[in-house]
Simulated assay, not measured.
Amino acid sequence: MSIARLSDLADAATCPRLVIKVGSALLVAKGEPRRAWLEGLVDEIAAARARGQDVVVVSSGAIALGAARLRLPKGGRANLADAQAAAAVGQIALAELWSELLGAKGIVAAQLLLTLEDLEDRRRYLNASATLGRLLQAGVVPVVNENDSVATQEIRFGDNDRLAARVAQAANAQAVLLLSDIDGLYDRDPRQSGANMLPLVRGVTAEIHAMATGGSGSGLGSGGMTAKLLAAEIAERAGIVLAILNGTYDRPVARALDKGIGTLFLPRRKDAARKAWLGGRLRMKGALTIDSGAASALRSGKSLLAAGITSVEGSFHRGDPVAIRDDAGTVLAQGLVEYDAAECVRLLGRSSAEHADILGYAPRSAVVHRNQLVLL
C-alpha cells in the first residue's frame, strides 16, 4: 500500500511514521504561546499515536518566545547576536511548553536541537538517525528545532521546512506535514483573481517552482512557499510524501485530511539511503562545470571524468560535496569529489590516460564516481 491522497496520511498502515512541522506564526502570538490552538494540535498528535502512528514534531518558536522575554526589537531578528540570545532563552520555554502539553496526554517529549552540520556530516547524520529511532521505539515524541543559539548565517538551515524534510529522512518517516498559513500551493499568487490550488503534485519541476513566492508573510518565520518546495524536493529524493496544510484552524490536521484540503507532493523516485542523504545536502564546497557529453554520460548512469570538466570553482578537498553544472549553469547533480580543487584544475579536460603523468601517482577511476553521485 502507498500514499495516494491526503486521507492516507491518517492511516497507520500506509503512513506508520510522520513528521509535523509547526511554524512560529502558528505557535506564538504577541510573544506568547497560542496555548488553546496548540492543545488542539497535541490532541491530534495523541490521536495519531493512538491509531498506531509515530510522530516527530519540528517546532519553530524559540526566537519569537525569547525575543518577547528579552524585549528585543524586530522579534529578535535585528542581528545575529540578538537571534542567538533569543533562541537560548526561548528554547527553554518552548521545550517546557511541549513537555507540559504532551505530558498531559501521557506522552513523554524529548528535545533534539540540530545544526546544519549535524545532518550534512554523514557520521553525525547517522547518530541523529539512531537517536530518533531509539526515542520513537521508546514511545517518545521527539520535538526538534534548529539550534539557533549557535547557528550562524553560513552554517544554518534558515528555515524549518527543509529541516523537517531532512529530519524525516533521518527518522525513516513516510510523510512530512508542513503546517502553513495557506491551504496549499497555488498556480499563482493566491491573492490574484483566478488562482487555483493544486491538490496533487507529482515531482517538483521548474514550472512548479515558478508558481511559488518566497518570504514569510508573518514576519516571524523564515520560510515561504519557495522553502516548502525545496523541502518537497529533499523529501522526494528519499521517497517521502510531503503535504502543505493550513495550520491556522483549530485541529488543523484533521480538517485538512478529512476534507482533503491541502497540496500533496508525491515523489517520483526513491533513492537509496546514502544517495538520498547526499541529494538532500544543502551546502556544497565547490562546483564543477561540464560539457554536453559529460552531462549525457551522467544521465546514463556513468561517473564524471576529468575530460568532460570545463571549469572548477571553490576550494575543496577529496571527499567534499560539489555541485555539477552544465554550461548553462543548471545544477544537474551533486556528489563527493575524488580530488582536491587544485588537482581538478590540473586535470581539467584531460583524458584518463594522461592523469598519472600529470599527478605523479596512479589516478583514481573518476573525478566523481557514480556511486558517490546523485542526479537532481
Rank of each mutant, 00 (worst) to 15 (best):
E233Q: 13
L257P: 04
A294G: 14
G293I: 00
G293K: 00
K275V: 04
D291E: 01
L257R: 05
F265D: 08
G286R: 06
G293E: 04
R283K: 15
M225C: 09
A276P: 03
T263W: 01
K275M: 12
A254Q: 13
G260V: 10
M225G: 02
G224R: 05
I244T: 03
K275W: 00
G286E: 09
G293M: 03
A272F: 00
D258I: 01
A272W: 03
E233G: 00
L230M: 14
R251I: 05
G293W: 01
L288A: 11
P252W: 04
P267D: 10
L230R: 13
A273Q: 10
L282V: 03
R269V: 15
G260T: 06
A235W: 09
A235C: 12
P252C: 05
I261H: 07
L245Y: 02
V253W: 02
W277M: 10
G224M: 10
A227D: 04
L242C: 10
L282P: 05
E233N: 02
A287F: 02
K259V: 00
R274Y: 15
R255E: 10
A227N: 07
G279S: 09
L242T: 11
A256E: 02
R269W: 08
K228Q: 05
D271K: 10
T248V: 14
I234M: 01
A231G: 14
T289G: 01
G280L: 11
W277R: 05
A227W: 01
A235N: 05
G221E: 08
A238G: 15
S296D: 13
E233W: 06
L288M: 00
G223Q: 03
A276I: 01
G262P: 04
V241H: 11
A227G: 09
M225D: 10
R237N: 13
R281E: 02
P252Y: 00
S292I: 03
V241S: 14
G262A: 06
D258Q: 13
A256I: 09
K228H: 12
V253E: 03
L266W: 06
A238N: 10
D291H: 07
M225V: 05
A256P: 02
V241Y: 08
D271I: 02
G260W: 05
D250H: 14
A227Q: 11
M225Y: 13
L264E: 04
L220V: 14
A232P: 06
A238R: 10
A254E: 12
A276S: 07
L242P: 05
A231D: 06
A232D: 00
D258P: 08
I244V: 15
P252L: 02
A273P: 15
G280T: 11
T226A: 14
A294F: 06
E233R: 13
R268K: 12
G239V: 11
L230F: 12
L245F: 02
A272D: 15
L245V: 14
I234T: 09
M284W: 07
A295R: 14
A235M: 09
D250V: 12
A235T: 04
R274N: 03
T248W: 01
A295V: 00
A297P: 02
S296M: 03
R281H: 08
G239Q: 06
N246D: 15
G279Q: 12
K275N: 07
L220A: 13
A256Y: 00
T226V: 15
L242H: 01
T248Y: 06
G286D: 04
